[in-house]
Simulated assay, not measured.
Amino acid sequence: MPRVAPVVHLTFELPDTGAPLRQRLAEAVVDRIRCGHIRVGDLLPSTRTLAAELGVSRGCVVEAYDELCASGFAVARAGSGTRIAAGAD
């Protein structure tokens, strides 16, 4: 039976540093990875869910997830969600 990764519940406040919101969100996820709160293979919340929890637009979360994928911290597969990539820790 395949391993089913739990969906990570992300709780954090995004500081107003002047950086774009997508960048601050991506950095917050990377910080959670480096602190060990999120592990390789963990499933990130859906973009709709996270956007609603943070009170931001879904597009901003999509851009942050895209940034995480482009930098090798996450992998996205249609229908399977976005997971933390191997080697991201």
Rank of each mutant, 00 (worst) to 15 (best):
P2L: 08
P2K: 13
P2F: 07
R3P: 09
R3W: 13
V4C: 11
V4S: 13
A5Q: 14
A5C: 09
A5V: 13
A5K: 15
P6M: 15
V7F: 10
V8K: 15
V8R: 07
V8P: 04
L10Q: 05
T11E: 15
T11V: 14
T11A: 15
F12T: 11
F12S: 05
F12G: 12
F12Y: 06
L14S: 08
L14D: 05
L14G: 10
P15A: 15
D16Y: 11
T17Q: 04
T17G: 06
G18M: 01
P20I: 07
P20T: 12
L21K: 07
L21C: 01
L21G: 08
R22W: 07
Q23M: 11
R24E: 11
R24Q: 12
L25K: 02
A26E: 00
E27R: 15
E27H: 12
A28I: 06
V29E: 02
V30M: 01
D31R: 11
D31S: 11
D31A: 09
R32S: 06
R32Q: 09
I33R: 00
R34Y: 10
R34G: 09
C35Y: 11
C35N: 09
C35D: 14
G36W: 00
H37F: 11
H37A: 15
I38A: 04
I38H: 03
I38K: 01
R39T: 08
R39I: 02
R39W: 03
V40W: 03
V40E: 11
V40N: 14
D42V: 03
D42Y: 08
D42Q: 06
L43D: 07
L44M: 03
L44C: 04
P45Q: 01
P45L: 00
T47F: 00
T47S: 09
T47C: 06
T47K: 11
R48S: 03
R48A: 00
T49S: 14
L50Y: 01
L50H: 02
A51H: 05
A52L: 05
E53T: 10
E53D: 14
L54T: 05
L54N: 07
G55S: 03
G55T: 06
V56F: 09
V56H: 10
V56I: 15
S57M: 09
S57K: 13
S57P: 07
R58P: 10
R58W: 05
R58A: 13
G59T: 02
G59I: 00
G59E: 06
C60F: 00
C60G: 15
C60W: 05
V61C: 04
V62D: 04
E63L: 12
E63M: 09
E63T: 11
A64M: 03
A64E: 01
D66E: 12
E67V: 04
E67G: 09
E67F: 02
L68Y: 04
C69L: 01
C69P: 00
C69G: 06
A70K: 08
A70W: 04
G72S: 05
F73N: 07
F73E: 01
F73H: 06
A74G: 02
A74R: 01
V75E: 08
A76Q: 07
R77C: 01
S80L: 14
S80W: 13
G81T: 09
G81N: 03
R83Q: 12
R83G: 12
R83H: 14
I84P: 07
A85K: 03
A85Q: 06
A85L: 03
A86N: 13
A86M: 10
A88T: 03
A88C: 05
D89L: 12
D89C: 11
